[in-house]
Structures are given as C-alpha cells and as structure tokens.
C-alpha cells in the first residue's frame, strides 16, 4: 500500500517552476524500451492537462494553476509500457498529488442578518442564538478555522452579550431589562485563521429583541379616590382608577385586573377594566340605602391579567400580618381585689389588628410575653386578659403604681409573624401592709454586738403608728433581746451569745392588726468572727437572708491531661505495620521490550523503601522480586536492605502474562500502543523495523484475548534481511505478520534447574527451621518459595509446594499469613541463624494488613557471602493470583 502523497503543490500559484514534481521509473527499462504514460483527473479527466509526463524519462510536470477547493487531491495513474508492443510491464501505480491550501476564501455567514429574542431577566450565560459562518478553505486547517467576535453593540454601554469565539454561540452576559432596552443590535465579525491578524473577516448583523415578562407590578394612579352617589340609584361609572404598569403595553403583563380588598361585602359595587386606558371603572350595581350606610370605605387592589414573573412574584402583596394598634393599652385595678374576686375578674381585651384588612386579626393566637410577676393570663383566641393572682401595689415589679407586661399575637400561618403589645396596669393602692424592715445593712461582729432594725410602712405613711418588734425564735434561750433606743421605738438587737435567731417585726396599726415582716439573723461562730468574717444583716419584707458562703471547689480531673501526657508515641516499639496501598500499577518501559535501564531499579527501590508509594500492580510485584535492594518497611523492617538480588532479572522479570495476572492496566497498554502505532503511521519516513513496539505473549495457557498485542511494524516486504536484525520476540512477531510458521521460544521448555525453599515460622517457642541451601543460586532457573507461618500458636501445617518448571523463568513466592494476632507475640519470632552455606536464600515477607505495631521481628545476620539471595515480596491476593497447580494448605 502506498500510503504517502507523492507530491504537493500549492493552489492558486504557478508551480511549474518546481517541475518536475515527480518521476517514475520502471526497472524494466534495463531490459526493454519503456514508455511512460499517465491518466486520471488532471490529465485526461477534468481538469484536463494539469499534469503531463515525459514518456521517455517518466518525469511528471504540472502545467496549470490548481484550486484546492475544486480538486484537493489529484491521483495520477502511472503506466509503464513496452515501447514496441504497448504492453504494460508494470501494474499501474497511483501517484497522489496533494494541493496545498491557501487562505483564499472568506468566512461566509449562513445569514447576513440574524434575528433572535430572549426574555428579560434571564439567567446569565443563557444561550440566545448561534451564529454560523463557514470557510471553504481546507477543513481542519487554520485557514478555515473561524473565530467569532462582537464588533459593536447598539445601544452601547455595558456589554450585554458574550459571543463564544469558537462556536459562535451568543449568550447573555448581563441581566436584560426590557424596560431599559427592548432590543439590541450587534455587529459580529468572523475571522479565519482563528482570528489571527492574517485572517480574513466578514461581518453580519445580529438583532436581539428582549421579550417582556411580567416583572413590574401595576400601581394605582392615586392613593385614594372618592365619589358620591344618591341612594337607591345605580351607576355605570362612579369613578375611574388609573392603573400604571411598566411592562409592555397592551399585553397581559400590562393589563390591570382590579379587585376589592374590603368594603364591598354587600356586593354593591364592581370594577371593570377599560382595556384601552387600563383604567378601572367602579360601578354601583346594587342600590344603596343612605339610612344604612352614609359612606362606604372601599379598599381596592390591582394585579395583571398575566401572572407575575417568578422573579418578582414573591414581592407582590406583602402580607403585613397582625399588629397591636395602638401598641400599648392601659388597664387599672385595685390591689384590694381578693382571691375570690380575681377569679372572675377580667382585666380587659387586647386584640391585634390585621394590617391588611384593618379588622381584628382572626388567624392569630395570643400568649403572654414579658410578665415579670406572672400576673396575667390571656385567652389565646380572643385576647381576654385575667389576673393569675392577687395584685400587690407594693410589689417591686410595680413601678410608681404601674405594672408593665407584654402580650404577643402570633399568626397561625406560615411564616409566623409575631406582634407585641404592651399592657400598662395601674394598681390602685390599699392599706394592706405591715411595716417593713428597710434595707438596713448592719455588720454584726464581735465588736458590734447589736444591730439596729428600722421598719418602714410601705403603705407610705411616714408618720404611722409605732411598730412593735418581737423575737420570734432563737436557737438558744435569750441570746438576743430587743432594746428600744428612741421614741420612734427603733430597736436594736442585743446579742448575748453566738448563734442565730429570728426576729419578727410587727406593726400595730390603727386597727391593731398585726402583720409582720421577719428576717433571719445569723451570727458567725467565734472563730469565724475572730477571723474577721463579716455578717451582713438585711431585713426585708419576708426576705430571709442566709449569709452562708459555700465554697465550691472545682476539682478538675487530670484524666485528660494524663491521657494527653501518655499520648501515643508513634514509632515506639514495633508491630504489624500497615502495608501502604496503592491501587494502580505502573508500567515500566523496560517491561515492554529491550533492556531494563539500570536507573529504574533504583527509582523503584527507593519508592519501595520509602514505604509510602508502594504499588500493588503486578509489574511492581515482579519487579520487586528483582529489586529487593534497599527494600524495607517504614516500621523498621529495613534489615533486609543491602542484601543482594538473585542477579537474574531476566529470569524473574515477568512476561506479559504475569503482568496481567498481577493486575497490570491493560487499558493503559492498549492506549499506549495505539498511540504509538498512530504516531508511526503519520510520520513521513518509514522507521527501521527494529524500532517498532512489541507487546508479545506466547499464547500460553489462559492467555487473554489479544495477547498478541498491537505492533507498529514497518518494513519492506521485499526485504527479509531485517528479520535478522530483530530480537527473538520481534522476529517471531514479524514472522507471524508474514504468515510464517513460527518456532517456539526456546527457553520455554528448557529444563532449568529448580530450587524449592520452604520456610516455616512460629510465634513463640519454636525454632526457625534451617533454610535449605541452594546449590547454585546464580544458575538460571526457577525459585519457588512457599511459606507459611502463624502467630496463633496452632500446630503448624507442613507447607505444600508444587513446582512446575514449565513456568520459567520466574520466581514465584507465595506466602500465607495465618491469623496474625498479638502485637508482642511476634517479638523475636524470627531469628535467622548464621548460614554456613554461602548459597542461601533468605525469604522475608511482608504482613499485609495487620493493624497494630509489633516490635522489629526480623533480624538478619550479616551475610557475608555475596551469593545469598534475599527475596522480599508482597502477596496481594494469596489465593486468586496463584496458578492452579500451586497448592497452599
């Protein structure tokens, strides 16, 4: 297959100076006279005569200016014929001449004028329309790549639209308001060469009409109207109400609908709309009776025929809800009300007003708000207020004879609205008080063995009758007595000892009734007094003062502190360490074909040793077998570091089958090779055959479909010598491609020496079984390590291994972890004694996902012999990843 154009010429130019553009030659020239002839489009088909050939030399010339837009490619059919007989000596050869594009075409809009419309108030970035321009130049070429741009906007101002440069989509850039600008006119330019300065441009006009939505509320021309009508008459037009609306005139967004809010309960009136003027005509349709109503207050509302736009609808007809009007109300009552009388006493009614109707609110409930003395109770339905108890003008909640409380009206609709009204209760005084001991504060201590008590009549008679003070109780007899010190009979209490007492202060008024106030007296004991404790004595009406001071010791538990102090110390001790997990395998280029770059080993090893980026892909597994140098876990398992490898990466490097079994990302491989194949196919020059890529498998047992992967294989099918330059796998592939019978890969069935190492490890009390010496670890061959250990102390079952030498050259290390349990139980469980034989294989393993820490359990003595092999590996799926002929008990 001839896959390349033979030549190229530029359209619109004289290419003759480049002649000859191509030449063909048949090697039959050497033995016979040959004439060359061409046919096809551009020769003997339209456009005729573009190409001619020198029949003797085979040189092909171009003679005319060509237009790529007419003929992008010429296919010249070349013939070689015997000059004497005219017989063809060669099969006709297709020679293609590609016409190179020149930017000689202007972008053409599909319409000269675009018209579109979009609703006002729409979301930004809403698509308005799409402009399309085409360019006849070569597709997928910069000459035909069009960039769109808004050149101007009318009316000017802030840009209201944005034009997608690539696809010509016109979007809203700002919120449009029809009431501001009802239409826009844009000049749009399309420029090829992606808008570059060397591009060619064309323009079009783009008109955008802004569609009205009902986003304006109608209002009334006046806030009040009045009219008069005689009783017993009807009127077809009492008065007109003008509606004003900013939306588009004569549309439903503009047309008004009038309605009565209140006042027309009798149905005497109606309103019709004059569609021409948008006025409401108020008519009287039912006779009025002057004697029944001399005036009728009508409350009228207006809306539109069309529903309000969702963007504003919530703002229409705001519900004001209930409110107390006036905001406070005053009541009065006498404190002489008895307990019996208050049970039926109604203080008053305080209803909220529906501010939308002006009538008492109906859909509300009432509760008491601030009511410091809990004096009121209100009926939740009708706002009737009653007392809860006897009122007292002398209550400290009463200020200047007025008690203040609040009542709340809460609407029952959602959202609930609450209005607050204030109740001012003026309490009329009555003579109902005994003398009251004032707020005298006396310090009672050792040196002041008396306290003066002053009584005051709260009924406000400063010159009331004398008071009488009596000692009510004392814990010990006669520790206190009362001594009157002046004519006002103000007593003082004289102390005779320690302790507490109670004094009652009685007032003998005109009626010789005795009501009392009492207070407790308390004196500190001697020690407290001597230490200077002060006692404040405060007497008030029925107020007991208890000057006890109770120290409160806040004891703070130091548990937290202890806990914090004993916080986890990472890294202390050792234990099971979590194996870092990654989910995606990496593919290493050396794993595909060819030698492995040496530095990859270090890269990989370092990653592994870091403990943080270990991947679980099969490639890493296999690679890890060959790159144990420096391997160790983050928890201190690095004792394996520094030990040698088997030195046989080839033998343990995986085939692609292993890659699959290990979970290599086959999608990645597919993509990788597909891209490579494309890249090679598009390159101008053929690549040497040994430069192609190969992913190859021998189609062994259970090979997945497509195991012979993609290969970009380029070569001259007439020349087989390139096969000799290929490696065995490439050569096999080449032979497959050529349809040859291939020979099996020689190393598959070679009887490589096989070594089996079995290691068993016990938790405690067991000794490590000596490792089996390997006679010659350097020999090419299989190494299969099967290992079982347990931490549970259960009897160890003998490991079972099954070695199949067919699966070479591999090292398969399987591992079984039986119930890793104790953290400390593994301590020292693995001690590797001196290995007298230099050819040992030491297998260490990783524990997959134990949670806690264990102390370092693996100590490996210095193995001086370089031929030791330390195999460190990771088992991701111990069961499923094994081949069927491997059995693990």
């Amino acid at each position: 297959e001839w896959i390349k154009f033979a030549a190229a010429c530029r359209e619109g130019e004289d290419n003759s100076k480049r002649n000859p553009i191509a030449k063909v030659r048949s090697d039959c020239e050497e033995t016979q006279p040959i004439v060359y002839r061409i046919t096809g489009q551009g020769i003997d088909e339209s456009p005729i005569g573009v190409f001619i050939i020198n029949s003797r030399t085979g040189e092909i010339n171009i003679t005319k200016i060509v237009d790529r837009e007419l003929t992008p490619v010429f296919v010249i059919l070349c013939h070689a014929e015997n000059a004497a007989t005219g017989l063809a000596v060669e099969k006709p050869l297709e020679l293609r001449v590609r016409v190179l594009d020149v930017n000689d075409n202007i972008p053409i809009f599909s319409q000269t004028i675009y018209e579109g419309a979009i609703e006002e108030g729409g979301m930004e970035n809403t698509l308005v329309m799409k402009l399309v321009a085409t360019d006849a130049d070569e597709p997928n070429n910069l000459n035909s790549k069009i960039a769109y741009k808004i050149e101007s906007q009318e009316p000017a101002g802030a840009p209201m639209f944005i034009l997608n440069k690539q696809n010509g989509e016109l979007h809203i850039a700002n919120i449009l308001d029809r009431e501001q600008h009802s239409s826009f006119s844009l000049i749009v330019k399309a420029t090829d060469r992606d808008g570059g300065s060397d591009g060619i441009s064309s323009q079009c006009t783009c008109g955008v009409k802004v569609i009205d939505v009902n986003d304006n509320f109608p209002t009334l021309g006046q806030s009040s109207y009045s009219a008069s009508i005689s009783e017993n008459t009807l009127s077809s037009e009492m008065f007109r109400i003008q509606a004003i609306d900013a939306d588009e005139e004569f549309t439903d967004n503009w047309k008004a609908v009038f309605f009565f809010i209140s006042g027309n309960e009798g149905g005497f009136f109606d309103i019709v709309t004059d569609p021409a003027t948008n006025q409401g005509i108020v008519r009287c349709i039912k006779k009025l009776d002057y004697e029944q109503m001399q005036s009728v207050p009508l409350s009228i509302g207006v809306r539109n025929v069309a529903a309000f736009h969702h963007s504003v609808s919530s703002q229409y007809q705001v519900i004001e809800g209930p409110a107390f009007s006036p905001s406070s109300i005053s009541f009065s009552a006498s404190e002489s009300l008895t307990k019996q009388s208050i049970s039926t006493y109604i203080v008053g009614t305080y209803q909220a007003i529906d501010m939308d109707t002006g009538r008492p609110a109906t859909n509300v409930r009432y509760i008491m708000g601030r009511d410091p003395d809990a004096l009121f109770i209100i009926n939740p339905n009708n706002a009737e207020i009653r007392f809860t108890k006897i009122i007292d003008r002398e209550s400290h909640y009463v200020i200047n004879g007025v008690y203040t409380a609040e009542v709340l009206a809460i609407s029952r609709d959602f959202p609930q609205r609450t209005s607050t009204g204030t109740i001012l209760l003026t309490i009329q005084d009555a003579n109902d008080n005994c003398p009251l001991v004032t707020n005298e504060i006396r310090k009672v201590c050792m040196n002041t063995p008396s306290v003066v008590i002053i009584a005051k009549d709260l009924d406000a008679d400063p010159h009331g009758p004398p008071f009488k003070f009596v000692i009510v109780s004392q814990p010990r007899n006669h520790l206190w007595d009362i001594r009157y010190v002046n004519v006002c009979q103000t007593p003082f209490l004289h102390r005779h000892g320690w302790g507490w007492g109670r004094v009652r202060v009685c007032h003998v008024d005109h009626a010789h009734t005795s009501r009392g106030a009492s207070a407790s007296l308390s004196l500190p004991d001697q020690s407290e007094t001597e230490s200077g404790t002060k006692l404040f004595f405060k007497m008030h009406y029925l107020l007991f003062l208890s000057p006890l001071v109770i120290p409160i010791l806040m004891s703070r538990s130091d548990c937290c502190g202890n806990c914090l102090g004993a916080g986890t110390k990472h890294g202390v001790g050792a234990g099971f360490e979590t194996v870092p997990e990654c989910t995606e395998g990496n593919i290493h280029s050396w794993g595909i074909e060819g030698a492995q770059p040496e530095d990859r080993v270090n890269i990989y090893t370092n990653t592994y040793g870091g403990g943080g980026m270990v991947t679980s892909g099969g490639v890493e597994e296999i690679t890890g077998l060959g790159t144990v140098k420096g391997y160790g876990t983050a928890g201190g398992y690095g004792t394996a570091a520094g030990y040698g490898t088997t030195g046989r990466k080839e033998s343990i490097g995986g085939t692609i089958k292993e890659y699959r079994e290990g979970g290599v990302n086959m999608a990645f491989l597919d993509s990788y090779f597909s891209e490579k194949a494309f890249a090679y196919a598009d390159e101008d020059e053929g690549r040497p055959a040994n430069d192609c890529l190969l992913i190859y498998d021998h189609e062994g047992l259970d090979s997945p479909v497509g195991s012979i992967g993609c290969c970009s294989f380029i070569g001259d099918d007439l020349d087989d010598t390139y096969l000799d330059t290929l490696g065995p796998k490439f050569k096999t592939l080449a032979e497959i491609c050529l349809g040859r019978e291939i020979e099996p890969i020689p190393d598959v069935n070679l009887p490589w020496p096989t070594t089996v190492v079995t290691e068993n490890t016990y938790t405690t009390g067991s000794t490590l079984q000596p490792a089996m010496p390997i006679p010659d670890p350097v020999l090419q061959g299989n190494v299969i390590v099967t290992e079982t250990y347990t931490t549970s102390g259960s009897p160890l079952k003998p490991p079972t291994r099954n070695v199949d030498p067919l699966y070479s050259p591999n090292v398969v290390v399987t591992e079984r972890v039986v119930a890793p349990a104790s953290v400390t139980g593994l301590h020292g469980m693995l001690e590797i004694p001196d290995l007298p034989d230099g050819s040992n294989v030491v297998v260490t393993e990783r524990v997959i996902a134990p949670s806690s820490r264990i102390p370092p359990s693996l100590s490996i003595p210095d193995l001086a012999d370089a031929s030791n092999v330390v195999v460190t590996e990771r088992v991701i799926r111990p069961a499923s990843g094994l081949q069927s002929n491997f059995g693990i008990p």
Binding site: A6, A7, K23, V24, S26, C78, L93, A677, D717
Partner: peptide, 24 residues
C-alpha cells in the same frame, strides 16, 4: 516502479525523495 517526488524545504530547496511501499 520506483516513484520519486520532489519535496521542498523551508528554504525552497527541492529534494528528491524515493518512496517505498510501506506496510502496516
């Protein structure tokens, strides 16, 4: 057949190039 075409570099210098059949 041995086809050759002339290719032009950026400097306008023509160069004959022989094409082989290529197989993918």
């Amino acid at each position: 057949f041995l086809p050759q075409v002339k290719e032009w570099d950026e400097n306008g210098v023509g160069r004959w190039k022989t094409f082989k059949r290529q197989k993918r």
